[in-house]
Amino acid sequence: MSIAKALGLGVVGAVLALSLAPQDATAQSEWETVRIATEGAYAPWNFSNPDGTLDGFEIELARDLCERMEVTCEIVQQDWAGIIPALQAGQYDAIMAGMNITDQREEVISFSRSYAGTPHGFAAMAGSPLLELETADAPLSLDDDPDQVAATIEAWKPILEGKVIGVQGSTTNSNFLREYLDDVIEIREYGSTEQHDLDLTAGRLDGIFAAHSALKATQQKPEFADMQIVGTGMRGGILGRGVAVGVRQGDEDLAAMFSAAIDEAMADGTAAELAVKWFGVDVTPAE
């Protein structure tokens, strides 16, 4: 048979397969076990130990939340790029992977309340032209200070012109760069932050753009001792409304369970304690 026929049959087959796409899951009222996916490559939020076990702020927080919800939890590792499609495909029930609430994501999944938040910004090695970037002490909010944000980015543009910036793909960070700086910089998208860190030390990149929390963890590594966080931090808008637990649409009961558990963990200080342990500062939401 020719490939042409095969191609035709293939398209027909795919159409048939897709027409079976799932209807909305009827919500399960009783959760006994919850499978939670994390990336395992995003220190200090979540990362892998030499023996393959998962560790980090979100791993410990997840265990605490599961105890509060009185469910058995299984934490699984999943590459970032496929983390939402695999949730929808039913590989697991929830995501705790430094994922921010955004409008785009809310079209396809639901979120609990936020349990952490951190500004986002550039980092560069010593000697990089990016060190010239204008840096204010306090981060700017894309929602509340649009004029200041626009002015800051305009001031950045001459320095950033033609620079190669690494960013993790499929993130709020890559969305931010494409929205505000697409015609100014060359954006390189990586599978994980660890990979763009490697390319930053290798000298293939002029800078990276990531969450400040992750950048600070990277700075702790000896090879990154002279890496600096530069430029005013940004938050809000397409950078999201804080990190939260993601669940499938239709599982809002599970999201509510997580929200209640997060409320408790914040009220008794557990969340702040874990945050200080892993980030050095309290990154839990203010209220």
């Binding site: 191609l7 790029a81 496929g82 939402i84 785009q104 793909g169 499929s170 993130t171 998208e189």
Partner: peptide, 19 residues
């Protein structure tokens, strides 16, 4: 991959890529 990050529809995108 980039398209899936925007649409979250992995199967359709990969089928088209395969074709």
């Amino acid at each position: 991959h980039r398209l899936i990050a925007q649409s979250f529809r992995a199967v359709e995108v990969f089928v088209v890529a395969g074709a």
